[in-house]
Write a protein that binds this DNA or RNA. Structure first.
Length: 298
DNA sequence: CAGCGTACCTGTAAGC
DNA sequence: TGCTTACAGGTACGCT
């Protein structure tokens, strides 16, 4: 569930279900799913077994869960990854890649205490790893090195809008490409980039250096607003590939104005939404509300 | 160094 | 019915 709202939905589920429970065993069914853990599957299982996850943090689309061993379990869902909290007797998913079992708590036999965490990923663009932390502990500002290059996201209380505007104008590229650059601003993917640009009435190929201050502030406000609204509705999902830790889909797809709406009327002006090929994907835009600039870049 | 294209996977749907 | 092609919400890396 790839973009910020979907990942935040998962983070909240992890925070509720897997924190404070000792890990009993770890099984890796596809080593590609932990390819960023360079020490390999055996080591991955070894360092986690017996540890307890202390918290669930997120920056952009990355998750990390500090352990009481001084390191952190890092996760990215890629294009099709899911983190599911399942009862042990639930049948294995077709694309189950990693299983993490927790020790049963003798003092509390509540049903959720023996649920296991499963990383399921059809395309295996996502993955898990264990990374050291500069300072042991559950501090959210203590970001693992593998995530250090990721910029803060618009829902981060320390996000610096002024610095973002400056950096954006220094770029020599199209505004959508910049929005998708996770080292500039994180959490925004193809859906919310198109929705934010539509709300801000900006064409995706608008050169970044020509954006005015108010336009950048408008764009940033739109990105933050659309992701907050999506989060309130449990995220966006068109099919069962994008679900929360309990396997449930969000329903923000009903609120999309531009993304996936080719040939449907723009909710603002009624003009047919268009689709262009963009970076081996698609861009959806309203030709009237978001006119193509004479000098386009992408 | 910055920007851009491509590779990495599996599955589904559309077109012939 | 089969076969082929296009496309899917992301990131990393190599080339220019």
């Amino acid at each position: 569930m790839p973009e910020l709202p979907e990942v935040e939905v998962v983070r909240r589920g992890l925070d509720r279900w897997v924190i404070g429970r000792p890990i009993e065993s770890v099984e890796v069914y596809n080593p590609r799913a932990i390819r960023r853990h360079t020490a390999g599957p055996l080591h991955f299982a070894e360092v986690l077994t017996g540890r307890t996850l202390l918290a669930a943090h997120r920056r952009g689309k990355y998750l990390w869960l500090p352990t009481d061993g001084g390191d952190a379990l890092v996760g990215h869902l890629g294009m099709s990854g899911q983190l599911l909290v399942q009862p042990p007797d639930a049948p294995d998913e077709t694309h189950l890649r990693v299983r993490i079992r927790f020790a049963a708590d003798a003092g509390d036999g509540a049903e959720h205490q023996n649920r296991e965490l499963r990383f399921v990923d059809q395309r295996t663009f996502g993955g898990l790893s264990v990374e050291p932390l500069a300072v042991p502990g559950a501090d959210r500002e203590n970001v693992p090195p593998g995530i250090a290059h990721i910029a803060r996201d618009p829902l981060d209380p320390h996000f610096d809008a002024t610095a973002f505007a400056t950096a954006l104008r220094r770029k020599r590229t199209g505004v959508k490409r910049a929005l998708l650059d996770q080292t500039l601003i994180s959490g925004v993917g193809n859906i919310y980039a198109d929705e934010a640009l539509w709300r801000a009435r900006l064409h995706y190929a608008r050169p970044t250096e020509t954006l005015t201050g108010p336009q950048i502030r408008g764009l940033l406000g739109a990105a933050e607003a659309v992701m907050r609204e999506a989060l309130e509705q449990g995220g966006t999902s068109f099919d069962a590939l994008y679900v929360n830790v309990n396997g449930e889909s969000g329903y923000f797809d009903r609120s999309l104005a531009a993304y996936g709406q080719e040939d449907r009327p723009c909710p603002r002006c009624g003009t047919a939404i268009r689709r262009d090929a963009f970076m081996n994907r698609s861009s959806y835009w309203c030709p009237k509300c978001q006119p193509r600039p004479r000098r386009a870049r992408w």
